[in-house]
Nucleic acid binder design. Sequence first.
RNA 1: GCGGCUGUAGUUUAGUGGUAUGACAUGAGCUUCCCAAGCUUAUAACCCGGGUUCGAAUCCCGGCAGCCGCACCA
Length: 581
Amino acid sequence: MDTYEKIIGLAKRRGFLWNSFELYGGTAGFYDYGPLGATMKRRIENIWRDIYVIGEGFYEIETPTIGIEPVFVASGHVHGFSDPMIVCSGCDSAFRADHLIEGIVEIPDTLSAPEIKQLIDKHDIKCPQCGEVGMFGDVFDFNLMFKTTIGPGTQRMGYLRPETAQGMFINFDRLFRFYREKLPFGVTQIGKAYRNEISPRQGVIRLREFTQAEAEIFINPRDKSHPRFSTVKNTVIRFYPASHQQNASEGNSGDGDKGIIELTVGDAVDRGIVAHEFLAYHLVMTNLFLTRAGIDPARLRFRQHQPDEMAHYAVDCWDAEVLTDRFGWVEVVGIADRTDYDLSSHAKHSQHDLSAVLEYDTPKQVEQIVVKPDMSLIGPLYKDKAGKVLAALKNLEEDDLSGDKISITVDGEEILIPHDVVEYETVIKEVRGENVVPHVIEPSFGIDRTIYAVLEHSFAEELVDKETRNVLRLPPEVAPVQVAVLPLLTREELINPAAEIVEMLRKSGIFVSYDDTGTIGRRYRRNDEIGTPFSVTIDYDTLDDGTVTIRDRDSMAQVRVQIGELAERINAMMRSGFDSP
RNA sequence: GCGGCUGUAGUUUAGUGGUAUGACAUGAGCUUCCCAAGCUUAUAACCCGGGUUCGAAUCCCGGCAGCCGCACCA
């Protein structure tokens, strides 16, 4: 039994993760979070909020999980998120159609489905599976987005969002105003995203419905330094730069620490390994989040995308990857500088300006030509074209005015304008700033994968008195149950004070479970297995002197404390660990 | 989506053409018992549909799901 099976088995047995729809046989790619899983997930999301929303001041927003078609046309998902597939009728195997003609055309992914089919027929491409020629059906697009329709009647097309990001991009202008029109600013969203994977196989690693936590940080494209970089520059991170990777596919091999270098992020920026401070700062934030959530730092690395692996518009992209027993290195976070791609694309498709004014420190004095056409002459001269002539004249640069006549182009036709219908003068104008489309830094977190990795990294099997003890060493902040209250025996004289202690701890905001079944040892083990960091035991001494024991999950050590200080001690231990006597 | 394998309580497992074995787990109770091992007791299963048959959980067919391989993988 490998670790994955142990973790999924434990998660299923104890109520972390369940296959969805199991009552009706189940469907791959969907998981339910059970009572412990949902609690743990919420705690991990709250750590994320603590870092990004509270720590960085990136407000959280919430946008619909269904998007209308134009949004995903602009984002590129309608065209780019689908793969051309083709099925061989000889052996019923399905292939990526564009992959079949890779050797024939340079960039197959720019071709339409019929074009690809034509090429396949023309070049007598063989089926890679059965070797038959001419058995291929038509090329069809398989889009990874779930499609739906909005409203009755006209059936407007909608898609379940494949990422939470677009909801933030398309609110850019409102957000910019909310942040009083200053760069940089960030916004976050935690929510569900959907991808209709062809064949999800790896449990919670590849889901059809999953939770993303994303931040979009809009920055000045001319200045990618980070105002607080000095506070993080000495943080050491495990880098796996592109230049250390043999090829892009190597990323998944569980090949230990090969090629990983440990560096401070300050050095990494100085040496040009990370493109700029802003990106490096967010590598640190990601590192912070993952380790605080319970990822083992020794099984975490930041892998840089190869140039050919990165989206064409991106400047630099790093994946936080965690080492798992069965799947090797798994991407849990992607951190990219997406430049102005998203905003520019939405600006173009929506025909709305999505730029920001960057104010200069001091206004610049700029010489400008002001063209003053004499419409009383131009009007009669050009009649119905006069309007367009006017617009063209206003856009002229100084150089265009030097010839005998002024040349402009209207509707593709060159028109020569005599000088005497246009007056122009040079004026000094004060320019306070300029319009730029902000660049976007996007850290994108896969919460479900993170949860799996935290479970795997915190899981340990130990031999205690020749018995195996399963223990999840979850950080107290992440553990679903924080304290278990356990009367030593199921006797009224112990149960009653135990109930009072439960009540008291709950009032101080601690999540408590109560358990009085079976032997005490069994209950400790049960709580070890779900990661409960502390157990409080009520015994006969409690009745004599008003003390209880706090038992530490990791060391199994115990300390006696007065009931009166119990809540305070527990709270302190949740912050800074068990303090032994 | 294709091929192979698989499908018995929550988990694991025995078994057979006559409705099923054990273990662990779980519930109730006992127990002055601090690290899953005690005592009593209880609950709980043959993936779904069709066929063959007097009778199917068992044989046959189909479906569904899971695992593995192929393909796919922002």
